[in-house]
Design a protein around this nucleic acid. Structure first.
Length: 307
DNA sequence: TACACGTGGCA
DNA sequence: TTGCCAAGTGT
C-alpha cells in the first residue's frame, strides 16, 4: 500500500524538488528528443519506441526514423511494409503499425500537428495514459502526472519504502505522484523527466546506486534497510523458448529480409506446423503480414502489407 | 484483471 | 544457462 509522504509540508516538498531538479541539471543524458528544438512528433516517436525498449537501442532507430519521416504526414504516406522494415528489431512491431495509424489520424483530424491535449492524444492508437501524459508534458510543457515504471519505482522506494512497486499500477500511486507535482507547469514537466531519469540512472531495478542519489537521506526503503520485494512471486515472467511470440518474431524477421515467404520456407522457420499455422493466422489478424492465394484459395506466400 | 505482445543485454 | 528487465498498450 502506498502512503503519503512523511512530511507533506511545502518545505519538504521543496527540498525534494530542489535536490532532484539540481541532480537532473547535472546528470541528464543528452538525448536527441530532449533537444531545445524538439517538437510533438519527435517526442511522440521517441515515446512509442521507448515502450518496453531500452534507450540504447532506441536512439539510433529514432535518428533514422526522424530523418526519413520528419513529420506525421511523411509517415502517414509510408506503407506498412516500409514502416515494419524501418522498425527493424526494436520489438513489438505492432507499435510501428499503430504509430503509422496515429500519424494518419493526426493528418486527417489534427491538421498534421501532434495534439497537445491529453484526451486527444489518448484517442490515438498505441497511446495510453503514460504516453499521452509524456507527450503533453515533454513536448508542450503541460502540467500532468507522468507515471512510468521508473517513476513508480522511485516513488515506491522513496515514499512507500518498498523495493519495487506492485505488478499492476494502483490508484494510490497516481495520488502520491499528483501530490508531489510542482505547481508551475514548466517546472512540473522538468520534475517528471527528472524523476524518470533518476529511476533510469540511479534508482535502478537491479542495483540501485544509493551513493549517487540526491534524496537518499529521504528514502524510506533505505531507512528501512532495504526490505525485499514483496511482490516477487507475482512477478514471474513468461518463458520465451517455444512461445508464439518467438515464432512470430521469426516470421517477421524473415519478411524484413525478403519480400515473400512461401509456405515451405515458413515451415523451415519453425518445427511445430500447427503452432506455425496459428501464428501465421494471428499475424494476419494483426495486419503484420498478408497471405497471398491462388485462384483456388490456396496460400502461395506471405508478405508484409504493401498498403 | 490477467495476459499477450519482441528483442537483446546483463548477472 | 536461466531469469529478469527495459519511458506500456490493447483486449
Amino acid at each position: 500500500m502506498t502512503t503519503a509522504p512523511d512530511c507533506p509540508c511545502t518545505g519538504c516538498a521543496s527540498t525534494l524538488h530542489e535536490a532532484i531538479l539540481t541532480w537532473y541539471d547535472d546528470h541528464a543524458r543528452d538525448l536527441p528528443w530532449r533537444a531545445p528544438e524538439t517538437n510533438g512528433w519527435a517526442v511522440l516517436v521517441s515515446e512509442i519506441m521507448l515502450q518496453q525498449t531500452p534507450v540504447v537501442r532506441v536512439e539510433p532507430a529514432w535518428q533514422a526514423w526522424m530523418h526519413r519521416w520528419p513529420t506525421p504526414a511523411d509517415l502517414a504516406a509510408a506503407s506498412p511494409a516500409e514502416v515494419l522494415r524501418a522498425w527493424d528489431r526494436l520489438g513489438y512491431p505492432r507499435r510501428a503499425l499503430r504509430l503509422r495509424e496515429a500519424a494518419r489520424t493526426i493528418v486527417a483530424d489534427h491538421g498534421g500537428a501532434v495534439p497537445a491535449d491529453e484526451a486527444a492524444l489518448r484517442a490515438l492508437p498505441g497511446i495510453g495514459a503514460y504516453t499521452a501524459a509524456a507527450v503533453a508534458a515533454f513536448a508542450y510543457g503541460r502540467r500532468t502526472v507522468v507515471l512510468d515504471t521508473n517513476v513508480r519505482r522511485v516513488l515506491g522506494r522513496l515514499v512507500s519504502g518498498m523495493a519495487l512497486p506492485p505488478p499492476s499500477q494502483r490508484r494510490a500511486e497516481n495520488e502520491t505522484a499528483a501530490a508531489m507535482l510542482p505547481e508551475e507547469p514548466e517546472r512540473s514537466a522538468r520534475w517528471n523527466v527528472a524523476m524518470m531519469e533518476l529511476g533510469a540512472l540511479v534508482c535502478t531495478a537491479r542495483s540501485p546506486q544509493c551513493g549517487q542519489c540526491p534524496v537518499a537521506t529521504h528514502c524510506r526503503w533505505r531507512a528501512a534497510e532495504y526490505p525485499a520485494d514483496e511482490f516477487a512471486t507475482a512477478r514471474r515472467t513468461q518463458a520465451w523458448h517455444g512461445t508464439d511470440r518467438q515464432a512470430r518474431g521469426r516470421v517477421l524477421a524473415a519478411l524484413r529480409r525478403q519480400d515473400e515467404l512461401r509456405p515451405d520456407e515458413a515451415g523451415d522457420l519453425w518445427p511445430d506446423p500447427a503452432q506455425l499455422q496459428r501464428v501465421l493466422a494471428s499475424l494476419c489478424t494483426d495486419r503484420l503480414i498478408v497471405a497471398e492465394t491462388d485462384s483456388d484459395g490456396v496460400v502461395t506466400g506471405y508478405r508484409l502489407p504493401q498498403q
